[in-house]
Structures are given as structure tokens and as C-alpha cells.
Nucleic acid binder design. Structure first.
Length: 722
DNA sequence: GGTAAACACCTTTTT
DNA sequence: GGTGTTTACC
């Protein structure tokens, strides 16, 4: 194969990055500049030109989706299988390492990965056993605290000795949590990373082996790495100068969950011999959209600096629509979408992006009434569903009896007469003796501590698990899952449940059996795991796409966060209001405001052809009306890139919502100023929200303290300034 | 043990 | 205001 296949499809900057000498590289890739393409071609370059075997290449991403896509594209480009190449998520690769070296990682061979839901249950149980008041120590907060520590690479025993009660208590809980996990062979997501780091750090031979094996290391979305992830990368590469990272500081939107944008700066210090390439040519959006993005993001400080440009034309100006309220906003957006479809566009080319999930409702309702198919991202994923997790818990217990999370989950599901009292005693015993619940249950049965009825029920449960383990021994994965779903009694349980929900649950269980049938067991890369254990790990690490039927032509609804990495011809960025976007919490802290601005930058740069920004002048929030001001981000976008939208052609809208005076909220021509307090003889006191028209036709919208929002014709209504 | 009423909650999310 | 979770009661 000649060089041109790899090099020809690239622009100059991309070429510079792909063909750079073997050294540490920092590629600052703006939105839509061909980031993944550079990564894929760089790896192909190593294989083809530098003759590095795929065996010696490592590529790390954040999501399974990105990992799969990268592998696919590399194989396509090289026209060969890249199976021996390690491509995966941080968590997936860490898991692989821990499986391969469970002993050295001080983990049992049967260790199981738990997702955040499992983790929360474990924490809740732990808090109960420590007899802590759960209103003072909310499980969610404890979980968050523990994960934050782990993300920073801090073990409970390493926590700085703080004097305050809060931290001492947290440390105590954290310690107990670590003990509990060790005892039950459970590993949470953050633990995967932390332990993989410790594994390499504390085992010289292993570290030497992997440093030699991974001759070139590549990282996608580097701005999203947290402390422990970066530390792990450094272990593998520092001194070898072989770390190739791609990222965009302007798209760092996960600071709140531990991502360290500073890692980009740290990289430059730790790898002094690095090269830098900026990718600034954008292949996605038109000029107006990029102009808006560039000017907006320029308001942030401490940027690496980057300015997107395009060879395409200016395109349409960005539409700004000031809606009366959130219903009107939804109405406007859906009308525009229907127009798009009438003009021959696909629904799947359209996205509605919002700051928080709660905002989706208005749009769903409007889309529903107008019969426009849509799809909302961000619901429960397949492997996170209760019925699925229950079935998996049976499988996990049969594989590892000490799995506390699974034991708790199904010991009385379906109900079999094992009550809270029995369980409490069991937990106390387990804690006293430092053993798992399963062992505690065995003890209690052996020592005849239980009433006949409870003992009977408990014995029945344990017999069931043993029977499952026995019966499925020698079965393949599909047969095993099929057997367990039946034998556990779950199918029967859900068949009895209220029609609608129960039916769906049964279907999901059948889908789980089907998933087991289709599961692609790669025995070569199985790290001597059984097919079942591989399947269980897969279920924990890859929660699976949500509902099926993704292939339908649907309008896409999602948060700004989940839109990262995607692109759409037509984009609506809705709810552009102070307090919503930027969110209230972010307004109070300057650092977070910058992250909100980056989020806005991400949103704007999703649009290829047409972008609309909308806000509502009144919005029902948490049950009461609010009158937010337009988002400051609207004002930060240059007016020449914006155009104001009027739905009804012959109505003059107040100047307050025209782009030039956004935020100024003053209309010189109107008889009443916006915000003016007024009194009406029937409706009482209120505040002017907006005005429309002039002379005889002048209308004002008023929010009355008692009578709500009303439009009034000024000529008829008797209004006094209050 | 299952249901209804009371109660707290209210960014963003992947693994 | 709407939802998910805990509590109280039958």
C-alpha cells in the first residue's frame, strides 16, 4: 500500500499531525475539524509507514461508541483486522488489565464490575449498617465523595488527616466501603481506573512489559481525562515520549465530574519534546455559525487559542426567537421542523438541544400532537433496567456467591418470604465476622439461629442458586441465560405485574436471552474468562443503546452534553435564558460559567446549515412562573450573525427582543416600559412583560399577581401605572 | 407484602 | 409541577 491512501484525503494541518515524527504530540482539534480522522490516519501511518505492528499500538477513548467507531475506521482504512490492537475505553482497558493480572491487582478471579446503581445500593446498605442518619449522610453524596477521591487517586487511608467531623466521618465510610467491596469481590467504575493505575505502579515487571508493548499510545478527547486517567497514561509513556493526544480545551464540559482541562497544560510540561498541531479548518458548519462560535468562546480566559474557519460560504444567519412562554417556544420549533420536512429535509437531520432533561417535555408534547416522530436520548439503557439487572444478579450470584450487590438485589425477588428482619440479622452477622452475606446465611442456617419459616425460605433461595449453578454448568451462554430467566421465577413475576409494564419487562427479558445468543465471544481476547463472565462484564461496562428502532427517521432530542461529537443540519438550541443556560449554579461561580460557555460553544458547533436559538420570556419552573432574562450568551454572539424571527408577519415585536438590543429590555416607542408595574381595575396589580403593535392596535402582556398572564388591548383596558 | 399517601428533590453523564 | 422514593397503613 502506498502513502497516498493515508495522506491524500487530509488537509495540510491534518497531514502534519498524521506524519509527525514519533514523539509526543498534542493535537488541538476544533469542532468539526476531523479529529477522529487524524487519530485513525495516524494509527494507520504507524502501521503502514513506521511498520509498527498493531500489537504495539494502544488507543483510548471515553465511550464504547467512539472506540468501536475507531476500530472500524482503522480496519476499513488498512483493509485488515486490527484485533491485536488495544482499542477501548479507559474503563474497558483497565478491566482487561485487571482480569489478566487479578492476582497482582489483589483481586479475586471472580471479581465483578458494578455500575453506579449497584454502587449506590452498596453505599446505602453500608450507611445503614454504620447506623448513620441518611438525612445527614445522603447516599448519593457519599457515593459522589468516594468517586471523587478515587478519581484523584486517593485511597481512604491516604486521605489527608482533616480535623473536621465531616471529613473524618467520610473517611470512615470510605474505609468501610473499600472493605466491603474487597470482601465481596466488587469493583466500581472509579476503582477500575485506580486499581489499574496501582497495578502498573506497584509491579515493576508488568509496567516494563506494557511500556515495551505499547510503543505508541493515542488518546481521544484528552480534555476530558481526569487525574487518575492521566496518571495512568503517564506511567505508560513518560520518558518514552510516545503519547499522542487529541483534544479541544474549548469543548471541555465535564469538569464537574473530575475532568481536568489542566491536563493539556500538564502534558506540555511532562513531555517537553512534544509537537503541537492546531486543526482549525472546519468541515461542518457555515460561516455565520462559526463566527458566532468563535466570538462567543473568545470570552473565556486561559484558552489554548484557536479560531475555526471554513471554506464554505456564510450560509444562513442564526435565527433568534423570543417566545412568550415555553409552549410557544415548542410551537415555534416544531413548526420550523415541519417546514423543514415539507421542504424535503429528513427529521433525523434535526436536533433539539437543551441544557437539562426536564426541558424535553414541552417539545415531546408538541411533537406528539403534530404527529412528528422523535427520539429522546438519555433514558434508561437496556442493561440498566430493573428486570435485566435482576436477571443478571442471578447469573452473577451463580458465578460468585460473595457478590453482595447481587445477593441483596434478588434474595427476595420474587418475594419468597425473606423479610427485613432476617436480612438485618444476616447483615449484622456478616459485618461481625467480616464475611459475605452468602457465608453469613450459611452460618445462620448451620447454627439454627432462624425461625423454621425464615430458615426454610432462605434455604430455598440458596438451593435455587446452587441448582442454577449446577444445571447451567456445561451449558453455553444462550442456554444459561434462557434457563436462569425461567428458573429464577422472574418471568412469572413480571407476567403477573400490571399489563403494560409487566409485558414490557417480559419482552426485555426475552431480549436479554436474545442478546446472549448474539453475544460475540472472542475467546482469544477473553483473558481466560468464561463466556458468562465476559457477558456480565460486557453488561456492566457497556450499558447498551437505549430503545431499539433507532433506524426510524426521527427528530433527535437530547441535552447539550450528549450532543458532543454529533452533527445535524438543523439545530435548535432552546431555553437560552439566564438561570437555565447558563444554569443558576454556574452563574454564581466564575469557573463554572466558563464551562457553561464551552457548552454553548459545543451546541452552536453541532449545526451544519441552520441554527436557531430560542428563549422564553416567561417559563414555568418548578411549579411557579419565572420571567428570566435572555441568556448572556445571546449578547455575546455578534449581531451581524443573528436574525430575529417573527412568526406572524404583520405584528411588530418589541425592540427588546431584537438582536441589537438583546438584554436591554427597553422599548422607547411603547407606552409602557417592560417591567413597569401596573394596576388593572379587575385583575389587580401586575408587571408588563412585553408589548406589541402601536396606536390603537397596541397590546401589552401583563403578569398579574393574582390573575396570571394576560394579553390586553391598551385601547380598551384601563391600566394605571402603579 | 403490597398499595396509597406523604415527602423530598429539582443540572449536566459515561463507564 | 412532576417524579421518584420513603413511610404508613391495611
Amino acid at each position: 500500500m502506498d502513502v497516498s491512501t493515508i495522506i491524500a484525503p487530509l488537509n495540510d494541518d491534518q497531514r502534519l499531525a498524521v506524519s509527525a515524527p514519533m514523539q509526543a504530540m498534542l493535537v488541538l482539534a476544533g469542532a468539526g475539524s476531523g479529529k477522529t480522522r487524524v487519530l485513525v490516519h495516524r494509527i494507520a501511518w504507524h502501521v503502514q509507514i513506521n511498520h509498527i505492528s498493531p500489537y504495539h499500538i494502544l488507543a483510548v477513548t471515553f465511550t464504547n461508541k467512539a472506540a468501536n467507531e475507531m476500530r472500524h475506521r482503522i480496519e476499513e482504512l488498512l483493509n485488515t483486522s486490527a484485533r491485536s490492537m488495544w482499542i477501548g475505553t479507559f474503563h474497558g482497558l483497565a478491566h482487561r488489565l485487571l482480569r489478566q493480572h487479578a492476582k497482582q491487582a489483589k483481586l479475586p478471579d471472580t471479581f465483578q464490575v458494578m455500575d453506579s446503581d449497584d454502587q449506590l445500593r452498596i453505599v446505602k446498605r453500608l450507611l445503614k449498617s454504620l447506623e448513620l442518619d441518611d438525612s445527614k449522610w445522603p447516599a448519593k453524596q457519599v457515593q459522589w465523595f468516594i468517586n471523587a477521591q478515587k478519581d484523584e487517586g486517593i485511597r481512604a487511608r491516604h486521605m489527608s488527616q482533616a480535623d473536621d467531623f465531616y471529613h473524618r466521618q467520610m473517611q470512615r465510610i470510605y474505609l468501610a466501603y473499600e472493605e466491603l467491596c474487597d470482601r465481596s469481590g466488587l469493583v466500581d467504575f472509579a476503582e477500575l481506573l485506580l486499581r489499574a493505575h496501582e497495578l502498573l505502579r506497584d509491579n515493576e515487571d508488568l509496567l516494563a512489559f506494557y511500556r515495551e508493548r505499547f510503543r505508541q499510545v493515542h488518546v481521544d478527547e484528552f480534555q476530558d481525562t481526569n487525574t487518575i486517567q492521566y496518571a495512568w497514561l503517564r506511567l505508560l509513556t513518560e520518558g518514552n515520549n510516545n503519547l499522542f493526544v487529541v483534544g479541544d480545551d474549548d469543548q471541555s464540559i465535564y469538569g464537574w465530574r473530575g475532568a481536568k482541562i489542566e491536563n493539556i497544560f500538564a502534558f506540555q510540561k511532562h513531555y517537553p519534546e512534544h509537537g503541537i498541531v492546531r486543526l482549525e479548518q472546519n468541515y461542518r458548519s457555515t460561516g455565520h455559525i462559526l463566527k458566532a462560535a468563535n466570538v462567543l468562546i473568545a470570552n473565556n480566559e486561559n484558552r489554548m487559542g484557536k479560531e475555526l474557519w471554513t471554506a464554505a460560504g456564510e450560509g444562513h444567519a442564526i435565527g433568534v426567537y423570543a417566545a412568550f412562554n415555553e409552549q410557544d417556544e415548542a410551537y415555534f420549533v416544531v413548526e420550523k421542523i415541519r417546514q423543514w420536512v415539507r421542504d424535503g429535509g429528513l427529521r433525523s437531520e434535526v436536533a433539539i438541544l437543551y441544557r437539562s432533561n426536564a426541558q424535553s417535555r414541552q417539545f415531546e408534547e408538541r411533537l406528539m400532537t403534530t404527529a412528528v416522530p422523535y427520539r429522546v436520548y438519555g433514558g434508561l439503557r437496556f442493561f440498566e433496567r430493573m428486570e435485566i439487572k435482576n436477571a443478571l444478579a442471578y447469573l452473577r450470584l451463580s458465578s460468585n456467591r460473595d457478590d453482595e450487590a447481587s445477593f441483596e438485589r434478588v434474595v427476595n425477588t420474587p418475594t419468597r418470604g425473606i423479610g427485613a428482619k432476617t436480612l438485618d440479622d444476616m447483615r449484622i452477622l456478616a459485618r461481625e465476622r467480616g464475611v459475605s452475606l452468602w457465608r453469613a446465611a450459611e452460618c445462620m442456617l448451620g447454627e439454627k439461629q432462624l425461625s423454621a419459616r425464615a430458615a426454610n425460605a432462605l434455604q430455598g433461595f440458596m438451593n435455587l442458586i446452587e441448582a442454577i449453578a449446577l444445571a447451567t454448568d456445561g451449558m453455553n451462554l444462550y442456554e444459561t441465560v434462557k434457563y436462569v430467566v425461567e428458573a429464577s421465577g422472574l418471568i412469572e413475576l413480571y407476567k403477573k405485574e400490571k399489563q403494560d409494564k409487566g409485558e414490557a419487562r417480559v419482552e426485555n427479558l426475552e431480549e436479554l436471552v436474545n442478546a446472549a445468543k448474539l453475544f460475540d465471544y472472542d475467546s482469544e481476547n477473553a483473558e481466560n474468562l468464561s463466556e458468562l463472565d465476559m457477558f456480565l462484564a460486557h453488561a456492566a461496562l457497556e450499558a447498551g443503546e437505549m430503545q431499539g428502532e433507532a433506524d426510524q427517521d426521527c427528530v433527535q432530542l437530547m441535552t447539550l452534553h450528549s450532543a458532543k461529537g454529533l452533527e445535524f443540519k438543523l439545530v435548535f438550541l432552546v431555553g437560552m435564558e439566564e438561570g437555565l443556560f447558563p444554569s443558576q449554579q454556574a452563574v454564581d461561580e466564575p469557573g463554572r460559567l466558563q464551562e457553561e460557555r464551552r457548552l454553548c460553544y459545543v451546541g452552536i458547533t453541532r449545526a451544519m446549515q441552520q441554527l436557531y436559538l430560542t428563549y422564553a420570556e416567561s417559563r414555568r419552573l418548578y411549579g411557579k412562573d419565572s420571567y428570566p432574562r435572555p441568556s448572556r450568551f445571546l449578547r455575546e454572539i455578534p449581531p451581524e450573525a443573528l436574525t430575529e424571527i417573527r412568526l406572524r408577519a404583520n405584528v411588530t415585536r418589541p425592540a427588546s427582543s431584537s438582536p441589537a438590543t438583546l438584554g436591554s429590555m427597553v422599548d422607547q416607542n411603547a407606552s409602557f416600559r417592560l417591567g413597569q408595574a401596573v394596576r388593572h381595575e379587575k385583575f389587580g396589580e401586575g408587571v408588563v412583560l412585553q408589548t406589541e403593535g402601536s396606536g390603537d392596535q397596541e397590546k401589552v402582556q401583563i403578569n398579574f399577581r393574582n390573575a396570571g398572564i394576560k394579553w390586553l388591548m391598551l385601547a380598551y383596558a384601563k391600566l394605571d401605572k402603579a
